[in-house]
Every structure is written in structure tokens, then in C-alpha cells.
């Protein structure tokens, strides 16, 4: 057994316990059917975990850690004759870069401006798709489809549609009488940001719709029937029955999407490349740009900041949502 799996899942560190069914574990006291530790069980856990652990350790964690050390060294592909340790110098260079403020602000706009419409529209779609109607299957297949397209391709697709000279967006807006002359969407930082957010909404609503729809279908009918008997209105049912019931799905989906959107340079990379004037860069596209300039030290420092930022966010987000749950129950 390779060392990697032994250290993470080896029999010595693991104490297998028969797990309770989830809902019961939350309500009743724990460990009702606790079983004794056996080597066999430990081995089973180790054996089942090993392939996944090895793959992730070798191809994800090892390169990440090896890349992290460059954050503390002078590592510039344009001059590799000196790769000495420079402490936090690369981090200073990130913070003192004139683009840093813009990039940070953009990242915030990008994440919030993407997640809010995606969540709201996705939720609405899920609620409306819960009801059966003719061709629902076809409808679902059609609107779920954007999820299957690569972010980079979506960037290119929307770049073509938002093209100021021959783009269809300007043409439609002109036909509708909303604009008099073509708008140079991707040539203006603010308009470009709006354009990438529209593209990302187009892409990301699906994931919310799928996840929320799946969760909604797990809400037992009895709950609704009881609510109806109580004379609860639509809004009350939604906020007091539906949302609390699928809260965990909502929290986890939002968390996962925030992390993914944050780490999703593909779309912006394909659509604006971070331009014009570096004003649509988010942290991860900016990191690509710095990497392309050969400044691996600075790029790695930025990468570590991304991980640290997301970890902090995750902790706060989970704490915040957990408290609410306790208050409710």
C-alpha cells in the first residue's frame, strides 16, 4: 500500500463506525449502533479510498504544492539564471500592482453579478418545472443544454454575438429601437463586464435549475398538504416549507458555484481576454496573463491568494448559514 493512502486512510488513524441514517443522527443521540474497530474494516476503507486518494494526491496536490513554492522565489521564465528565495516579495508585487484594485473589484462583480441572477432564475425555473406539462422533457433538455458547452466556447460564441460591427445583439437592439447606433460592447470596460455577466448567466442558470429541481422533488407531498390545510399562501409555503426543506442543497450549491465561478477564467478568457485595458480581468484571468508573461513567481503568489481567499469565504459562509439553521430549528 503506497504511503499516500496509508497516511490518510490507514487503519491506525481510522475508526470505522457504522453510520446512522442521516436524519436520525441529527435528531437522536449518536452511537446507538457503534461497532468495534476491526482491522478488516480499516483495510476496506483504505482500499476503497486509495485509488481516489492516489490520483488526487499525485495529479492535483503534488503539482499545486510544487507550484506554491515558486510563490516565494524569484521565478521568471525570462530570466531563470536567478531563482533565489525572495520571501513575500511576490505578494508585495501583487498588492502594489496598479491592476490589483481593479482585478479585485471585478472579481467581486463577477461572482456576485453571476451568482445572484443564476440563483434567482434557476430557482424560478425549478419551481415552474416542478409542475408537469406537455413537452417538459424536451424543454428541460433544451434549457439544460448550455451547461454542456465549454466556458471558452461560450466566450467565443458571445464574443461573436456582441461584436460591435457584425454582432447580432446590436442588430436586435437597433431593430427594437433601443439603441440608435451600434454599441461597442467589448471595447468599453463596463459594457464588456455586463456582456460577460450575461454570458455567464446564460451558462450557469442550468446548474442551479437542475440542483434545485432535484431537491424540490425530494420535498414530501405531505408537507405541502399540511401547509394547504393550514391555509398557508403561496409565498408562505415557499419561505416556510420549501426553502427550509432544501436549505442544505441551496447552501452547498451556492458555495460550490461561488468557488467554481471564482475559478472560472475560461469564459472571460474567450470573450474579452481581460481587456480592454485589463479592466475585465478577474483574479484567475489575470493570473493567466501573468503566467503568459513568464512571471511564475507572481502568478503562484496570486494562486495562493485565491486558495486562501476561497478557504476563508467557505468558512465564513458555512458558519453564517449554520447559525441560521440553528435559529430556525
Amino acid at each position: 500500500m503506497p504511503a499516500t493512502s496509508a497516511t490518510t486512510t490507514g487503519p491506525k488513524t481510522s475508526r470505522p463506525v457504522r453510520k446512522q441514517a442521516a436524519p436520525r443522527a441529527r435528531n437522536g443521540p449518536r452511537g446507538g449502533r457503534k461497532r468495534e474497530f476491526t482491522t478488516r474494516r480499516g483495510l476496506l476503507i483504505a482500499a476503497f479510498m486509495a485509488p481516489a486518494a492516489i490520483f488526487v494526491a499525485v495529479f492535483t496536490y503534488y503539482p499545486m504544492i510544487a507550484g506554491s513554492q515558486m510563490a516565494f522565489r524569484h521565478w521568471d521564465l525570462n530570466d531563470l539564471t536567478d531563482t533565489s528565495w525572495v520571501g513575500l516579495d511576490n505578494f508585495h508585487r501583487v498588492f502594489s500592482d496598479p491592476n490589483w484594485g481593479t482585478v479585485l473589484g471585478n472579481t467581486g462583480t463577477w461572482v456576485i453579478g453571476s451568482i445572484v441572477p443564476q440563483l434567482v432564475i434557476g430557482f424560478a425555473l425549478a419551481l415552474w418545472l416542478r409542475r408537469r406539462f406537455r413537452f417538459r422533457g424536451v424543454y428541460q433538455a433544451l434549457i439544460f443544454f448550455p451547461w454542456a458547452i465549454s466556458g471558452f466556447l461560450i466566450g467565443i460564441l458571445f464574443r461573436w454575438m456582441f461584436n460591435s460591427e457584425f454582432g447580432v445583439v446590436n442588430d436586435l437592439l437597433q431593430k427594437a429601437g433601443l439603441i440608435d447606433e451600434p454599441v461597442a460592447w467589448l471595447a468599453d470596460p463596463h459594457k464588456a463586464m455586463i456582456a460577460v455577466l450575461i454570458a455567464n448567466t446564460w451558462y450557469g442558470v442550468t446548474f442551479f435549475a437542475i440542483m434545485i429541481l432535484a431537491a424540490l422533488q425530494s420535498v414530501p407531498d405531505e408537507l405541502y398538504e399540511a401547509a394547504a390545510l393550514d391555509g398557508a399562501g403561496k409565498a408562505r409555503t415557499l419561505f416556510q416549507i420549501t426553502i427550509p426543506y432544501i436549505r442544505v442543497t441551496l447552501v452547498l450549491t451556492v458555495l460550490l458555484r461561488v468557488i467554481w465561478i471564482f475559478n472560472f477564467p475560461d469564459l472571460i478568457f474567450g470573450m474579452t481576454g481581460g481587456g480592454p485595458n485589463n479592466e475585465t480581468h478577474i483574479v484567475t484571468t489575470w493570473m493567466i496573463k501573468i503566467t503568459q508573461q513568464g512571471d511564475y513567481g507572481k502568478a503562484s503568489a496570486l494562486g495562493l491568494l485565491v486558495i486562501a481567499g476561497l478557504l476563508l469565504f467557505t468558512v465564513f459562509f458555512l458558519l453564517a448559514t449554520r447559525e441560521k439553521r440553528e435559529v430556525r430549528s
Partner: peptide, 12 residues
């Protein structure tokens, strides 16, 4: 793993 930006790991 979901938080790791690909570009930090590409070189190694």
C-alpha cells in the same frame, strides 16, 4: 481541490 486555480499547478 475545487479552489485550486489550474494555473498554479500547470508548470509543475
Amino acid at each position: 481541490t475545487q479552489m485550486i486555480p489550474a494555473f498554479i499547478a500547470l508548470g509543475p
